[in-house]
Design a binder for these strands. Structure first.
Lengths: 194, 194
DNA sequence: CATTAACTGGAAGGTTGATTCCAGTTGCAA
DNA sequence: TTGCAACTGGAATCAACCTTCCAGTTAATG
């Protein structure tokens, strides 16, 4: 089935457009315009737009392509490490990823195209599972409900990632403060860096 | 001196434009266009633009008008309460304020017009003073330097305020987690809500 | 009250970016 | 190889905004 009736050049150009869009998502201070994507891909604007049916659909596909591996990585961590460590590692990587693809953050915000929405949901799901595991292990405070904690972490990680390019030390500070703040109030358990 | 040589209607219209812009800053999902501001003020677009010399200058003035009292409030708190309590109260109010003027956050970002820049600097200054005071009192961890902590808090408060309209419980969770996370690692001191 | 410089409304102009259109080109099936 | 439907580039079109301009109006002054 793959690409029924589609011409080979159309398939190739579609791929080129997607790659160009993805590349531009990682470049800060570059206008994410159709024209820029077209130039980068070596195609005409018409071809780029037509390949996905519109700019939004193209960006949706590009973001999805970037986010897919991130979600998968989260799932892996969840199986390989204890929840708290998984969360710590995942947050660090997630922030690093968002920082490296700076404009993704801005694009994600308010983007409710299908693939992006789906993957964002999965991302939230993964974090929530990590938090649930941490709670099971008794290393997560229980005076804030799980959904709120998840939402909080998502927001905060987002904000830090944005600042990241200019202030890399913010990530460490963030992980330290939030992970400590999430521990149960009573627990004197190990704090600070692990 | 006040308004030398300016006609009375010009002065009045300038004020109307400013009020309209301020009002629109508090309304989410409203396009912050010159035309919208003009309609709200009951003026022509030309009059609105001319009153401040451009859209940016108008928004700068509007934001400044909103932010001034916030900074002043922070200074008051710093004198009236102990630093930790001042910080807690100030953050709560700051988030509430930003949430109420939702578009201000988006507008502030990347806005480097004079008055706005100045006030943002003052805001950072106030928070930094609160943190310095808390450190003097021994209730703030010292393994993260002051500037980083300040930047972190600023970022995070910003992000929470954005989500606020839909999820008011996030503010409490934020304050709780971050204030606990900021305490010195060793200190078993009172945690959770005061 | 008359004069006039200041001011006003909103149409016209300019800019930026997405989408549409079409004359020309090209992959592919026969 | 040929015929043609699919596809391409990029000019033209459309849309959303900000800014400029100017004919008409109005506040201030003597």
């Amino acid at each position: 089935m793959s690409t029924p009736g589609r011409r080979a050049d159309a398939v190739r150009n579609r791929q080129l457009a997607l790659e160009a869009a993805t590349a531009l998502l990682a470049e800060p201070d570059t206008a994410l315009t159709v024209e820029a994507i077209a130039k980068r891909a070596g195609l005409g604007v018409g071809t780029v737009v037509r390949a996905f049916g519109g700019k939004d659909a193209l960006l949706d596909a590009a973001v999805a392509q970037l986010l897919g591996p991130v979600v998968r990585r989260g799932r892996d961590l969840l199986q390989q490490s204890d929840p708290e460590q998984a969360l710590r590692t995942f947050l660090t990587e997630l922030i690093g990823f968002q920082a490296a693809h700076h404009p993704v953050s801005d694009q994600l915000r308010g983007m409710d195209t299908p693939a992006t929405t789906e993957l964002r949901g999965q991302l939230v799901e993964v974090v929530e599972e990590m938090l649930a595991g941490a709670r099971r292990d008794g290393v997560l405070r229980t005076d804030i409900d799980l959904a709120t904690t998840t939402a909080l972490i998502g927001r905060l990680a987002f904000a830090v990632a944005r600042a990241q390019p200019g202030q890399p030390q913010l990530t460490d500070a963030f992980i330290t403060v939030v992970m400590d703040g999430l521990r149960p109030p009573s627990s004197p358990g190990r704090r600070s860096r692990p």
